[in-house]
Design a protein around this nucleic acid. Structure first.
Length: 224
DNA sequence: TGCCAGGCCGGGT
DNA sequence: ACCCGGCATGGC
């Protein structure tokens, strides 16, 4: 099983360019991106981030100074703008009360404790918490998203209804605890998911096709 | 045109 | 412990 997790990664890595998700961005911008990206097209998230940058609102203190209404207006292109403005606000309150508004302080904590604390914030669920740990904190937390579930359940490695923690544990128990690896693996799964593993799968040209064949798994678009 | 995108919450069984 | 409706914009 350990080999299989690595071979899937290697096959994806060979097929796609390195994805380099979120390089050279500030931590706060990454956290904002993680919240805005919830069930949302990434292009729309980038628009919202650009608007925030233009408004010089991409620091915790600057964003805290905005009214909910103004914040919601700035992030409008990302969709769900009212809920997301509230969620950003919830995070800012958490950061302020628990870490004096300092991300530096927040990330000094143990990853497991940060995660637990983040999950207490309304609007931050398991995936968003892990995205924050991984992409903003450079901590080895594997991020499980809709594509991860889809790709791996179609390969019969996990059940379709498998709970988040179970899937995450599977990855983390079978891979080295390496933030860089988790970052790239997750990004590659999104890439292959978008290109080949939608509702109508394109398995015949998918880079993971040989993996399906080796394990005698019928293509999802074939009758089982 | 309709469907979908890097979820999560709150209320109901 | 699940299941579901709601949340919303922009791109194809």
């Amino acid at each position: 099983m350990r080999r299989r997790f690595l071979s899937i990664y290697q096959r994806l890595y060979a097929h796609f360019e390195p994805q380099g998700w979120w390089p050279g961005r500030g931590r706060f911008e990454l956290i904002v991106g993680a919240l805005l990206a919830q069930n949302t097209n990434w292009g729309n998230v980038e628009k919202a981030i650009r608007r925030l940058r233009r408004a010089r609102a991409l620091t915790p203190s600057a964003m805290s100074a905005l009214s909910q209404r103004r914040l919601a207006d700035l992030i409008r292109p990302a969709g769900y703008f009212a809920v997301k403005a509230q969620r950003l606000h919830n995070f800012l309150v958490f950061l302020h009360t628990r870490h004096k508004g300092s991300l530096q302080r927040m990330f000094r904590d143990e990853p497991a404790r940060i995660r637990e604390a983040l999950l207490e914030v309304s609007g931050i669920g398991p995936e968003t918490a892990d995205s924050i740990l991984l992409y903003a904190g450079n901590m080895p937390a594997f991020v499980v998203d809709a594509y991860t579930k889809r790709v791996f359940s179609r390969h019969r490695i996990i059940a379709d209804q498998a709970p988040y923690r179970e899937i995450q544990a599977l990855f983390m128990n079978h891979l080295p605890q390496d933030a860089k690896l988790y970052n790239e693996y997750h990004a590659l799964l999104v890439a292959v998911g978008k290109a080949y593993c939608r509702n109508t799968p394109q398995c015949d040209t998918c880079p993971l096709r040989s993996d399906l064949e080796r394990h005698n798994i019928p293509f999802p678009n074939q009758a089982v």
